[in-house]
Design a protein around this nucleic acid. Structure first.
Length: 516
RNA sequence: GGGGCUGUAGCUCAGUGGUCAGAGCAGAGGACUCAUAAUCCUUGGGUCGUGGGUUCGAUCCCCACCAGCCCUACCA
């Protein structure tokens, strides 16, 4: 079993999970499940990023300590991912002792290698960004990101000598053409590197909520600088050499485009400085856009505050948990995986979810389950007949498996699902042509319905990564024992798996059609 | 200022230096009634953003322009 180590970004615990973070996490979970399905030895992690001045501020504003505040906010992510059926193997919090140990070990190594040095730094500082700005970067004297006033600050900071890695990074990119995908994002990273790299200030002395710098007790590491290292903590850096050797040789980061620079520029340079390999691959996805606007914390906050009445009120729908309550967990997951190609930006709208839900889930998959189980009741006494080994659908199923698998393998789960749905369409067409509901019970009816049941069995396997609960329910209704999540390709999708003789249940519609 | 991306049927998007530019959804017509007013069949003539250029020939190559988005040192 080839190892496959998949990571999401760790989420900053300043606010609740929103649809954007759910988008990343659900897609990562679906990809992890897909890799398990094809037999990879998957290690899938997510977590929360909990240091920095903003956390200290938020804790104070809420009348509590940073530790208490991060305990509470991190728990909201755990809960959200539980609700959304995220099957991670590890959830890391950057405030955990295991992470402190790895950060200190890793950065001590870089320090010992001579890539970190002390330098005085003074300038205009934004507390929210935790960063300095030059005069001309400011907008009317305020931070260009947050619009907040900056303050005059001076401190001795340790700097990571990022500038020393310009050539080595370019060389690495040259030798690893698939390091960053898609290509458009790789170009962006290359452009950034070619534009010249500045050394990065990586420590702070103005507060203590961070990982202490091991060689200088007055400093803590800057939050981003400790955050990236979480991937190593989970992989077992310095604590489990066997796990680390396996996982770090197969590390795949899924990230949003906003943090491209840290992952595609800083991170490989940090790895080089510490004499380990950079990760295998970084896949950069786009944003969900809503009415052309970035859908994020800021927008949610603005909406909650009032603003433009009708639109602002829809903000509650934008909570992934609210959407899950409304549509169901699997339909939400399906929408997040199916409707937006990973890599580009995508539109996110209530109408879009409803439209996709009705077309794919209610009319096609759900309705197919209903009609097949109904006819099995009336023509086969509720017992599912075996499929026909020589069915014309066997070839369609084989082609579907091939196309679906190829798509998932290249980070195109939306195309994978699209391909899977063609098999559902073929089954519907086949029923229409054969009209088993008009036939007398017998071998001919059995063959047609057995084939339809076999399609449902295979479809359940293939949709499992995106909709695990639905996959289980389909198997249960058609009488297939076990959990499709434990199935392994390609065997599980080979034609002929539906043996017949099982009790088929006609239940309520899987996905009741929604009114637009 | 610099860099990157996008602009293709009502909507969301595929796509290729050359026979009629494609899919899904929506819409239209028909069939059917097992099924969740579902399904199946038929139906898409859209200046492939605008103007040039290269070429025997471009939607796809080059240039300019227009429109929109993003990055330019810390919100997935």
């Amino acid at each position: 079993m080839p190892p496959y180590y998949l990571t999401t970004p760790i989420y900053y615990v300043n606010d609740a999970p929103h649809v954007g973070t759910a988008y990343t996490t659900v897609n990562a979970d679906a990809l992890a499940r897909w890799h398990r399905l094809v037999g990879d030895e998957v290690w899938f992690m997510t977590g929360t990023d909990e240091h920095g001045a903003k956390i200290v501020e938020a804790a104070e504003a809420n009348g509590t300590t940073p530790q208490d505040w991060t305990d509470r906010t991190s728990a909201r992510f755990v809960e959200a991912w539980r609700r959304l059926d995220i099957a991670y193997d590890d959830f890391i919090r950057t405030t955990e002792p295991r992470h402190y140990a790895v950060v200190q070990r890793f950065l001590q190594r870089i320090y010992d290698n001579g890539y970190i040095e002390l330098a005085p730094y003074s300038g205009l500082y934004c507390v929210s960004c935790e960063d300095y700005y030059t005069e001309d970067q400011l907008i009317e004297g305020t931070c260009p990101v947050h619009g907040r006033p900056v303050i005059e600050m001076q401190e001795d900071n340790y700097f990571f000598k990022l500038s020393a890695f310009e050539d080595r990074l370019l060389e690495f990119y040259d030798q690893h053409p698939d390091f960053v995908r898609p290509v458009s994002k790789r170009n962006e990273a290359l452009g950034f590197i070619r534009g010249g790299l500045r050394d990065v200030s990586i420590t702070r002395t103005s507060f203590t909520w961070g990982v202490p710098v091991p060689w200088d007790s007055g400093h803590v590491f800057y939050v981003w600088y400790d955050a990236l290292i979480n991937y190593l903590t989970v992989a077992g850096y310095g604590s489990d050499d066997a796990a680390f050797a396996s996982r770090w040789g197969a590390a795949h980061h899924l990230i949003g485009k906003d943090i491209l620079k840290f992952h595609c520029v800083w991170w490989p340079a940090m790895c080089m400085a510490a004499q380990i390999d950079p990760p295998d691959e970084i896949f950069v996805h786009g944003y969900l856009l809503m009415g052309g606007q970035k859908l994020g914390k800021t927008m949610i906050a603005a909406g909650a505050a009032g603003g433009d009445g009708a639109k602002a009120l829809r903000v509650t729908d934008v909570s992934p948990l609210a959407l899950a309550d409304d549509f169901g967990v699997d339909p939400l997951r399906y929408h997040l995986v199916r409707d937006v190609p990973l890599g580009g930006d995508g539109d996110f709208s209530y109408e879009g979810i409803v439209s996709r839900y009705n077309a794919d889930l209610a009319n096609n998959l759900g309705n197919l389950v209903s009609r097949v189980t109904t006819v099995v009741q009336s023509k086969c006494g509720g017992v599912g007949p075996a499929c026909d080994e020589g069915s014309e659908l066997a070839a369609v199923a084989a082609e579907t498996l091939e196309t679906t698998a190829a798509a998932w393998a290249r980070w195109a789960p939306h195309e994978g699902l699209e391909a899977t749905w063609r098999l559902i369409g073929a089954a519907n067409a086949r029923l229409e042509a054969a009209e088993p509901w008009k036939m007398e019970p017998g071998p001919a009816v059995d063959a047609v319905l057995g084939d339809a049941l076999e399609v449902l069995r295979i479809v359940a396997v293939l949709i499992g990564p995106a909709m695990p609960a639905t996959a289980r329910e389909v198997w249960r209704r058609i009488g297939v024992p076990g959990d499709p999540g434990s199935a392994r390709l390609p065997d599980a999708a080979a034609w002929g798996g539906y043996e017949g003789g099982a009790t088929v249940e006609k239940g309520a519609p899987l996905f009741p059609r929604r009114k637009a």
